Simulated scan of single mutants.
Amino acid sequence: MRASVALYNAARTPLIRFVGKRSVPKSVDHSPRVHPASPVSALPDSFAAYRAKAQQHGPLGRAQFSGHVGAQPGSALGPVTPKTGEFFDRTELPARFGRLPWTQAEIDAVETGGASMYA
């Protein structure tokens, strides 16, 4: 007799037991609401109204483009300068946040895959 077939055909009882009948709540509100952490307290009127004000790597409004991507130079979108306290590159940070120089022991450890640490 094949044990796997016998086990497969045996009555299976789940390990989890649920108490009571399954019931779907009748008073679930699925109407759209503003997320509690949202910076605005009202939903947009339509997707088109949202898209006209949205920003993602630059303006999303169609008035900015004349038919195809790249019709205007990037400088036409306005100045790109970081705000106070923001930096675009790590090299612009104060010296205390700069990269530390590698030691010769660290270079050897990387080049040998860590074997030089135990030799």
Rank of each mutant, 00 (worst) to 15 (best):
G70W: 05
R96E: 12
K21C: 10
Q72R: 10
P39R: 02
R90M: 05
D29R: 04
A95K: 13
S66W: 07
G58R: 08
Q104S: 04
K21H: 11
L93R: 03
G70L: 07
A6T: 04
G58V: 06
S31A: 14
S66M: 13
A119C: 11
D108F: 11
Q55F: 06
G85Q: 01
F18C: 08
G67A: 12
V80T: 12
G114K: 10
A105P: 00
A71G: 14
V40D: 03
Q56S: 14
Q56E: 02
A52M: 02
P94S: 10
D108S: 13
W102P: 01
V24Y: 05
K21R: 14
A76S: 12
G61W: 00
R33T: 03
S66E: 12
A63K: 05
A115I: 04
R17N: 15
G74D: 10
G61P: 00
V24I: 15
H30E: 11
L60M: 01
Q72T: 04
V5I: 12
F97Q: 14
D29V: 05
A11Y: 09
P79Y: 08
F88I: 09
Q72A: 13
A54L: 03
E86P: 02
P44G: 00
E86K: 13
D89W: 15
Y8A: 09
N9W: 09
Q64W: 12
H35Y: 12
Q72V: 03
G67C: 05
Q104A: 08
R62S: 11
R22W: 11
G20Q: 01
F87K: 04
L7K: 14
A6N: 12
P59M: 06
H57L: 05
V110N: 05
M1G: 07
A71E: 14
F65R: 03
P82F: 10
G85F: 06
W102V: 03
L60P: 00
A10D: 10
T13S: 06
P73N: 01
A115V: 09
H57N: 10
V19E: 14
I107S: 08
G67Y: 10
A115T: 12
G114Y: 11
A119D: 14
A6I: 02
V69D: 04
A52K: 01
D45H: 06
A37G: 04
G20C: 00
P73T: 04
D45Y: 03
S46V: 05
L100Y: 14
V40I: 08
V110T: 03
L100T: 13
A10L: 11
Q104F: 04
A109H: 02
P44F: 02
R12N: 15
S27L: 15
S23L: 11
T112C: 09
V69F: 06
T91K: 06
V69H: 06
A109Y: 07
L15N: 09
Q64T: 09
A52G: 09
S27D: 15
L60D: 01
S4R: 11
S46I: 07
D45R: 04
V28T: 06
Q64V: 13
P101T: 04
F47P: 00
V69G: 01
F18L: 15
F18S: 06
Y50R: 03
V80D: 13
